[in-house]
């Protein structure tokens, strides 16, 4: 491969521009599905693109009382985190752009770093809503992170590798892991909802209480970048779960269908469940989520030892 290849992978495909565009599509699909579930019409196809385009064109207001550099840098950092993470994830049936040993841990770490960025963005400002939102974001991070991590590590344990690509290879050549590890799959998909702060785990940005949570003070470019980062995180999360649990790398069409089906499940949960309070969220994760994933882990270890 020529020197062009890494740059092409970074900026155009599979990461970069292509990923951002596809994330618009997934955001639109998510909103449209929820609207249809609620008997509404929902947004037009180009709505997410128009939203982001408008946000990026707008003035960014830096409020009083924030650390200016941090305020400006956090959105970029969060955006960079998810874009870097996307390099290690195989999208739409293509091999991952890059792989090194243990890149699963790197991807997970980068995705968490994005959430930490959100938390820092909240605590950076003196807005009370933002501070409460940031506290909730970070509390929720500690709640779902353990079980979600375990749920994604279990395929790694089975495949005996910490590299996403080799886990994907393993998944393509064996039975779908949703069959062999159903509990892990459930924990993973609920963990993804928690990670993306979607209902019912949207206490960190519950608009009825704390307006827009940690991002209350963000406007214009910063807000737009955070929004893109979250959309991309949705795509990465869906792709990871699809690769691990739904039969690895297959042809692009089938892969997209699987991702859309997963999105349907997420949208269904978003529209049928009431928002949980933050204490209920934490309780649920540590009481049910952690124990379930530990049980799954135990089963895997027992099966493997035998």
């Amino acid at each position: 491969m020529t020197a062009l290849h890494p740059l092409f992978a970074l900026f155009i495909f599979p990461a970069g521009l292509f990923l951002i565009l596809i994330s618009f599509f997934f955001e639109w699909l998510d909103r449209k599905l929820i609207a249809r579930f609620q008997n509404r019409q929902g947004p037009r196809f180009l709505q997410p693109f128009a939203d982001i385009f408008k946000l990026l064109a707008k003035e960014e207001i830096v409020p009083i009382g924030v650390h200016r550099t941090l305020f400006m840098a956090l959105p970029i950092f969060a955006f960079a985190c998810v874009m870097t993470a996307s390099l290690y994830v195989p999208f739409f049936g293509f091999k991952a752009a890059w792989h090194i040993r243990g890149d699963l841990i790197i991807a997970m770490y980068l995705l968490s770093a994005m959430t930490v960025c959100l938390g820092m963005a909240g605590t950076n400002s003196i807005n009370r809503f933002a501070v409460v939102g940031a506290t909730r974001t970070l509390t929720q991070l500690f709640a779902y992170e353990g079980p979600f991590m375990l749920a994604l590590l279990m395929p790694a344990l089975v495949a005996q590798s910490w590299t996403i690509s080799s886990i994907a290879d393993y998944a393509s050549n064996h039975t779908w892991m949703i069959v062999t590890q159903p509990i892990g799959f459930i924990v993973a998909i609920i963990g993804l909802i928690g990670k993306l702060e979607l209902p019912p785990f949207d206490a960190p940005e519950a608009e009825q209480e704390i307006v827009s949570g940690a991002l209350s003070e963000y406007s214009g470019r910063g807000f737009g970048l955070f929004k893109i980062a979250k959309n991309v995180e949705l795509v990465i999360g869906l792709a990871l779960i699809t690769v691990f649990y739904l039969g690895g790398i297959v042809n692009p069409l089938l892969f997209s269908i699987k991702m859309v089906v997963l999105l349907c499940v997420i949208a269904l949960m978003q529209s049928t469940l009431t928002r949980l309070r933050i204490d209920q969220t934490v309780g649920l994760w540590w009481q049910a989520g952690a124990i379930l994933s530990l049980a799954q882990l135990l089963i895997i270890i027992l099966v493997r030892v035998r």
Binding site: R36, F37, Q38, N39, L268, T272
Partner: peptide
């Protein structure tokens, strides 16, 4: 236990309540 699931699923196959005015 998930009260609204019937409405939610059936509305996928129904016309929207919104009128395209």
């Amino acid at each position: 236990l998930i009260g609204m699931i019937q409405d939610v699923l059936s509305s996928m196959f129904k016309k929207t309540a919104t009128i395209s005015y």
